[in-house]
Design a protein around this nucleic acid. Structure first.
Lengths: 244, 244
DNA sequence: GTCATATATATCATCCTACAACTTACTTCG
DNA sequence: CGAAGTAAGTTGTAGGATGATATATATGAC
């Protein structure tokens, strides 16, 4: 009877659950910055787990800069500004509004990055981007493979900017969107096939080859807006300027 | 002799050090994705700490999606794409090149966000942005206060986009830059006073009031390039278009 | 010999206790 | 009244014990 969804190895460990609980309590504002958390012992009693489990949970929050523990005193909630990590709540992404916001962020990041990539790409970069492009169309409709190739295409463009932070941020945002779409398809098999518009990708690639930043940016912007539409998210971007 | 820098309560706990070590080993490629980590016992012996400490360290890496632990088998390094969090190594930011990259990312994020903010800002938003602006100039040269106000100014603009993810990302990047500059000043007191160009901020604010996205974007871009220059980082942005 | 079952082993997951280090508050004594 | 010392509470670390899970080995039936 111990059913297990096992969403790809996410075994939902005890520390993870405790951390998620506390994290939510902080995000929601029940625990304001400066507030002191209950002691480890109180938490372990409250959740019915060992103090060890509580400590592992707190270690997470601490690493993220959400709380600060001071020996002999206790643990305190830190201000949101001093977070040491960005983490996106996947539960929240089930809300279409948040999905829309994430696509908007992605658009901002990728559009300008495409312009940078067009200006800086090397031949080696173009090669790996082309390879991803080929995989995308040639994957004979094996969905996961096409999606992987799609993501790789975007990551390789981010890499071509030569800026590792841009690469990290774009990879992260894309991956969050991928997970979110994956989940949406699990629960609602309406859109059974995620269409990938190869034409849009080719236009981006051509602009990169031509080394035309403005064209690359426009093509990327159009592509992401299109991709959002295809999964049922319409972007309210102000900047659909000079399209097509 | 137990000297302590005590960078604001960062007491350098044992799990933190172990996590940092493993994290570096993964980032540097010594532990490739798919590779198996040493067992918890081996690690505890290697570092001379208890297994408890090792587990807290691993809990961190797990939460970040850097490794995956499977009961009965071991812990394995995950591919960079499946990170669940973005974290920036502050050690790496001591390198000017990385600082430059971070400013470039910030420029991309904030420029377009300023355009969005200009299109969407409410009166309430303008009020809090103005408040930050006033604090910035009026802080009678108390550095930390001015810097706080500066950051608040940028955060409030990000908030005015109405997109919480944009707010989170911009806050995060700005905070990393702040820490990095703070550190640079500690070790190298050459630039003793971080100048804040109030004029640039006013131009951004005026564009927001006017509801002019293009002007807001241009002003923000010019400001960030200027800010980077003032701390000794020159941005190689391709997009200094329509400058002024 | 081959396959299925049972056992042993390795590893992570959790729990428990104990002590050290640190802070705060109280008590005691001058 | 003041200062030093003491006690209690809290986090940090250590170490061992047990449960859960996966792999490898051994055993036995056919």
């Amino acid at each position: 009877m111990k059913q297990r969804l096992a969403a790809i190895g996410t075994v939902e460990t005890l520390p993870h659950r405790v951390a998620a609980f506390l994290s939510r309590e902080i995000e929601s504002g029940e625990l304001n910055p400066g507030a002191r958390l209950p002691t480890e012992q109180e938490l372990s009693e409250k959740f019915g787990v060992s103090r060890n489990v509580v400590r592992e949970a707190i270690a997470q929050l601490r690493a993220d800069g959400m709380i600060e523990a001071r020996q002999g005193i206790g643990a305190f909630v830190l201000a949101p500004e001093q977070r040491a990590a960005i983490r996106i709540d996947r539960e929240a992404l089930k809300d279409t509004h948040n999905m829309e916001r994430l696509f908007e962020l992605r658009c901002i990041l990728e559009a300008e990055s495409a312009a940078l990539a067009a200006a800086r790409r090397s031949q080696e970069h173009l090669g790996s981007i082309k390879a991803a492009l080929d995989r995308m169309g040639g994957e004979e409709r094996w969905e996961e493979g096409s999606i992987d190739a799609d993501l790789l295409f975007h990551r390789e463009i981010a890499r071509a900017t030569g800026n590792s932070y841009i690469h990290t941020f774009i990879s992260f945002v894309c991956e969050q969107i991928r997970h979110s779409i994956h989940y949406a398809r699990m629960t609602n098999p309406l859109h059974d096939l995620v269409e990938i518009n190869v034409g849009e990708h080719v236009r981006i690639y051509d602009a990169l080859v031509a080394g035309d930043p403005a064209a690359a940016e426009a093509a990327m912007r159009a592509h992401i807006i299109g991709a959002a539409n295809r999964v049922g998210v319409k972007l309210p971007l102000s900047k659909a300027k000079g399209a097509k």
